[in-house]
Amino acid sequence: MALTPGEADHLLLFTQSQLALSRRARGLRLNVPEATALIAHQICEWARDGLSLDAARTQARTILGVNDVLPEVPEIVTEIRVEARFDDGTRLVVVAHPFEPSPTMDIDEASAPPAHDYLTLHNMAETDIGVTSHQHLAEVNPRIRLDRSRAFGMRLALPAGDTQWLRSGTSVTAPITPIGGDRIVIGNTGLVDGPLDDSHVRERALRKLRQCGYLDESQGEPIGDLAGANRAVSKIMDDLRKSRQRPQ
């Protein structure tokens, strides 16, 4: 048979699902491994029959209802993930809340820190850009026009790990909050690389950002152009290269 390890594992699904079927035939309500195996294996069989992924995923909800399993099972088996061999190859099938007839979408709550201020970000790039919660705003993509002086030392007031998605050519006014902790930014473009509240660090960074062509604004007046912004990172690299050639 030349079975591979993954196929050998799938035989365990088959065996366990047969056990589940025979127990179900005796009128028993299924437990965690039985219910999981029965649904996962049936998805694999439907793939073998030539069904599409979407059809198999939809039909998977019809296999077992809440009354077919032990009462605690729906709270434990909240999602079944299995890979099945469809006509176009191996594909991942994920069935959330498999004992419910139609899919429900869980939305997690997450709270954002209070806004300290608001800042408008204009995405001048030809692509969409995402800016995440804890990114130092003064250093974001050169093609975003924002008041980098006001953005210095600040981040978006979003829940941790959330993203503000900026569509190409649009503007968003977003709540912002100061970066916390010791307020030191190391890395990213390397244009800051120091304490945010050190005025020399701040002035040097803002000057370099403008010199390199980062889009900026001051009192609503735009500074820089897209062509300059497109060259900004190359400019940083030029400076980096030069500094490395200097004798130590």
Partner: peptide
């Protein structure tokens, strides 16, 4: 499943 595209595909062992 050791061949799967994620690390949590059935059968989990």
């Amino acid at each position: 499943d050791p061949n799967a595209s994620i690390d949590s595909a059935e059968p989990l062992i």
